[in-house]
Design a binder for these strands. Structure first.
Lengths: 228, 228
DNA sequence: TAAGCCCTATATCATTTGATAGGTTTATTG
DNA sequence: CAATAAACCTATCAAATGATATAGGGCTTA
């Protein structure tokens, strides 16, 4: 996996003229290692070796292991912002407006779910970023607060609000927050426990037909969650 | 957390006449450490210290760190078997019988969900066992195969079968398996990401009113999942 | 060309961690 | 009582790990 990332340093989208800098390479490899091994499990030597540099280079660019981890978290917040913010911002705008009907809220929720399904069944780099976030939320390493405050919490609060509106309430109650957590959690385990999912489903969750089935199940569960 | 376990070595159920053996104590503390810190994060010294013994005692009873971890997994398989097997076996018996109606299957699923909600909102010891399992499924340490084959896989296959019957099919299709995974995953994150859940919900998921709300959301999502 | 800075490598340190060698105590047994 | 084995401890080792002191190369700039 890490080898594959090394040999494909650039996403097909960015036709970057200048080659990837050492700092960017360490960041990318570090994200992969932390996502796969966890903060304690990923060693600085492992990351340095996979990035094709020596140990002090990491210290030079990021101070220490904590700094690298934090930098990975910051990078991911930026990445996910670019990807998810468009739909999230539009939905929040509509929700704050107060003019959202229950049906419209439901459509927004389905759109968000589709975006998240796409995120966890996307290319390796994006999936590793997602894994990094999910692992960090349970490990609480150096990047925890950043990811929780900047990514997880606002996203979850938006979903909870939309659920409330979809269920005909104007304000969120405790149950909406529980529902939001559980709904999105149903998706997260598919990437967090990818080996388990692959073994049980007989193939990667990011490939068809699983990709389609996951979206379908998510919509069904959402439907039940907001049913009257 | 570990301190609390140390000071409360016996579950209120078992009025054991003989005190806990050293081996049992190490096993219990080890489960807690592995559940909280992961296999790499939990050090043998940490476990030995928390159990009130020295390092070689672990080696004496379990060979090495891997052996202790595996023994924890075996202990947990036994524990969960005692707790979950009654309902699981009855459900499987009914499912294999072939005479299960869709409504009956749905009732079985609700019963299983209620059992799992109880498991993740139960006392510390049982929750730590659950955390151990969930962490191991994503980390794939020494105890992975045992937990996957003996606990996770059979349970998930049962749920998938029941979902298929509840949806009016006689055999499970890929979508039922995806649905089973996602349905149970919605519960797992509440204990795996307990700090996140507590921060977001403003209180432990194992306390009211969250306990009730979790069960309610689970039933709603199940309802949507098996809806025609 | 010389000075200075950015970036990277070699070599090394102190700590942590898993493991073990050898001795001590306690209980059991012939 | 002597002998044996089980259970545990002290002391220590070797490997792994995060970190760093020091030096070298390449580039710009004066």
């Amino acid at each position: 996996m890490i080898d594959r990332l090394l040999s494909a340093p650039l996403s097909p989208l960015e036709v970057s003229p200048e080659p990837e800098t050492t700092r960017q390479r360490i960041l990318r490899v570090g994200m992969a290692c932390f996502a796969q091994e966890g903060f304690a499990g990923a060693t600085t030597r492992m990351i340095a070796s996979a990035a094709g540099v020596t140990l002090p280079v990491i210290a030079y660019h990021f101070g220490n292991k904590d700094g690298l981890h934090l930098a990975c978290a910051e990078e991911i917040v930026e990445q996910h912002r670019r990807r998810l913010l468009p739909v999230a911002a539009a939905a929040r705008c509509a929700a704050d407006d107060g003019s959202l009907t229950a049906d419209q809220a439901r459509i927004w929720l389905e759109k968000i779910l589709a975006t998240l399904v796409a995120a966890i069944t996307a290319d390796d780099e994006q999936r590793l970023a997602t894994d990094f976030v999910l692992r960090e939320l349970s490990e609480q390493g150096p990047g925890y607060h950043l990811l929780y405050e900047e990514l997880w919490k606002p996203g979850m609060e938006l979903v909870a609000e939309l659920i409330a509106i979809a269920r005909g309430r104007s304000a969120t109650v405790e149950g909406d927050r529980v529902g939001a957590m559980m709904l999105l959690a149903s998706l997260s385990s598919l990437t967090r426990d990818e080996p388990v999912a692959s073994a049980f489903l007989g193939g990667s969750a990011s490939e068809e037909p699983h990709r389609t089935l996951i979206g379908e199940c998510a919509r069904r569960m959402l439907s039940g969650l907001i049913a009257a």
